[in-house]
Design a protein around this nucleic acid. Structure first.
Length: 421
RNA sequence: GCGGUCGUGGCGAAGUGGUUAACGCACUGGUCUGUGGCUCCAGCACUCGCGGGUUCAAGUCCCGUCGAUCGCCCCA
C-alpha cells in the first residue's frame, strides 16, 4: 500500500456521492422555503476566532483543532464547526447593519482531531443555519423546526428533539455554585473525569454515564432561570407546539460549545452505535459582540447537523435514497464510418438533454451490449454500414427487446420524440 | 490520549507453520463471424497493509508501525 488517505477521512466515490448530493439538494431546497441564503466561508480561519468564539476551555479548542503556522507566521486552524466563521463573516461584511434579520445556511467540511469511531471522522460534514438579529422566541423555534423538517423530509424516522435553557452567563454562575455545593459531599466518589469537571464545568457531571447515581436530586438549571430566561423558554415551547414539533425538555442537556445562551437543543436518533446525537444547536446572544466588538451586538441562533451521521442512521433504518436517472441511450457504431457518425449523434443527443453514452475501448458489439445493460440504458442505438447507407439507425428498447429502425436525421434532430413515442 | 477486534485479487471470503494461496461475485474472451440479462467453458494475486524478528520453512508465531472498526472521553 503506497499513500493512504489521512486517518479519519473518506473518499466519496461515485455510488456513494449521489447520496450526498441528494442530502445537499434537500437542504438547499428546504432553506429556500425557509428563506435562508447560502453563505460560503473559508475552511481555515485565524486560530483566535475559534478560541474566542467557541471557547478557550472547550474540548474542541483545547485538544481537537487542526492548528498550524502558515508561511507568514500566522496561527491558522481548520474550522472545527461552522458558527464562528459565519459570525466572523457577518461582522466583517457588516451584515448587522441591514434592517431585517439575516438568515444564512452552509454545507461543508469541518475538522476535528479526534479518534475516529462510528459516526465520527476527522473531516466530517455539516449542514448548518444561523439566524441573526432576532431575540424573538419564534426565531429559536423556527431553527429547531427547520432541522426537524429536514430529517422528516429525507425520511429519517424516530428523531427526538431535546431542548433546554442554559440561561444567561449570570444565571449559570449562580447555578454552577449550587451544583458544586450539591456535589461537594460526594466529590471524592466521582469518576476522575467528573472530578475535573467539578471545577471546569460541573453541569457535565449530570450527563456522565458513570456517576448518574450521584446526580439524582441535583438542582436543575430550569429552577434557577430568571424571569426573562424562563419566559423566553416558555415561549419557545409554545411556538414549537404551535408548529407541531414534538420535543422533550431535558434539563440536563449541556452542549460542548461555550457560546450558547437561553435555548440549547439536540436531535437524537439510534443507529450509530454509541453515538446518538445527529445534530444540535442553540441561541448565542453574546457571540457576535464577542467576535465583532462594540457596536456589532446582535443576537443569534443556529444549528448544525452532521451529514455522516444522518447517512448512517438512514442506512440503519433502511431508508432508500432515490437513485439517479439511468442512461437514455447507448450508441454502438460498427465500422469506421459508423463510429464517426456515432460521435456526431452522441453530441446531438447530449445537447438535446439526453443522457447518452458510447464505448471508448474498441470493444466488440457483444461487449458493448453488456456495457449498455450494466448502465441500464433504456435504448441501444446500433449503427452499421448498411443502416448508414440507408440513412437509418436501429433502435432497440432494452426492457422489451423490441427493435425498430428510425431515420438518422430524426434521431439527431428530435431524439426525445423519436425515442419515446 | 487510552483499550478490544481486524488488515488475503476490483469486492466478499477460506486458509488452525510445510508442496502450485480454496471458493463466490465482478471482469475479459469463447459458446452466439452485427445484439444484453440465462447456460456451459476458459482466463484473471511472483503474493497475503508495511517493517523487522523467530524457524530448515510464515499469509499463518512474536515485536513494531500504519490503517480500519468498536468502545472510553467528547461531540456532528
Amino acid at each position: 500500500m503506497s499513500i493512504q488517505k489521512p486517518k479519519g477521512t473518506q473518499d466519496l466515490l461515485p455510488g456513494e456521492v449521489e447520496k450526498w448530493q441528494y442530502l445537499e439538494n434537500k437542504a438547499r431546497d428546504l432553506c429556500q422555503r425557509f428563506n435562508y441564503k447560502e453563505i460560503r466561508t473559508p475552511i481555515f480561519e485565524s486560530t483566535e476566532l475559534f478560541s474566542r468564539g467557541v471557547g478557550e476551555t472547550t474540548d474542541i479548542v483545547e485538544k481537537e483543532m487542526y492548528t498550524f503556522m502558515d508561511k507568514g507566521d500566522r496561527s491558522i486552524s481548520l474550522r472545527p464547526e461552522g458558527t464562528a466563521g459565519v459570525v466572523r463573516a457577518y461582522v466583517e461584511n457588516k451584515l448587522y447593519g441591514v434592517p431585517d434579520v439575516t438568515k444564512l445556511y452552509y454545507v461543508g467540511p469541518m475538522f476535528r482531531y479526534e479518534q475516529p469511531q462510528a459516526g465520527r471522522y476527522r473531516q466530517f460534514h455539516q449542514f448548518g443555519i444561523e439566524a441573526f438579529g432576532s431575540v424573538d422566541p419564534s426565531m429559536d423555534a423556527e431553527v429547531i423546526a427547520l432541522g426537524y423538517t429536514f430529517y422528516k423530509e429525507i425520511g429519517l424516522k424516530d428523531v427526538t428533539v431535546e431542548i433546554n435553557s442554559v440561561g444567561t452567563p449570570s444565571v449559570r454562575t449562580v447555578y454552577r455554585e449550587k451544583l458544586q455545593e450539591f456535589f461537594a459531599p460526594v466529590k471524592d466518589k466521582l469518576c476522575k473525569d467528573c472530578q475535573s469537571r467539578y471545577d471546569r464545568n460541573p453541569m457535565r457531571i449530570l450527563d456522565c454515564k458513570i456517576d448518574q447515581k450521584y446526580g439524582e436530586g441535583a438542582p436543575e438549571i430550569l429552577d434557577y432561570l430568571d424571569e426573562e430566561c424562563s419566559t423566553h423558554f416558555a415561549q419557545v415551547k409554545e411556538h414549537l407546539s404551535a408548529m407541531e414539533i414534538p420535543y422533550r425538555v431535558n434539563p440536563r442537556l449541556v452542549r460542548g460549545l461555550d457560546y450558547y445562551t437561553h435555548t440549547a437543543f439536540e436531535y437524537k436518533a439510534a443507529g450509530i452505535g454509541a453515538i446518538d446525537t445527529i445534530g444540535g444547536g442553540g441561541r448565542y446572544n453574546g457571540l457576535v459582540e464577542q467576535i465583532g466588538g462594540h457596536g456589532t451586538d446582535q443576537p443569534g441562533v443556529g444549528l448544525g447537523l452532521g451529514l455522516e451521521r444522518i447517512l448512517l442512521v438512514l442506512q440503519a433504518q433502511g431508508v432508500e435514497i432515490p437513485k439517479p436517472e439511468p442512461l437514455d441511450v447507448y450508441l454502438i457504431g460498427l465500422g469506421a464510418a459508423a463510429e464517426k457518425e456515432v460521435t456526431k449523434l452522441l453530441q446531438q443527443l447530449r445537447i438535446q438533454g439526453l443522457k447518452a453514452e458510447k464505448d471508448y475501448q474498441g470493444r466488440k458489439m457483444k461487449a458493448q451490449m453488456k456495457s449498455a445493460d450494466r448502465l441500464q440504458a433504456k435504448y441501444v442505438a446500433i449503427l452499421g454500414d448498411d443502416e448508414l447507407a440507408r440513412g437509418e439507425i436501429t433502435l432497440k428498447q432494452m426492457e422489451t427487446g423490441s427493435q425498430v429502425t428510425v431515420s438518422l436525421v430524426d434521431l439527431g434532430s428530435n431524439a426525445a420524440k423519436t425515442l419515446f413515442e
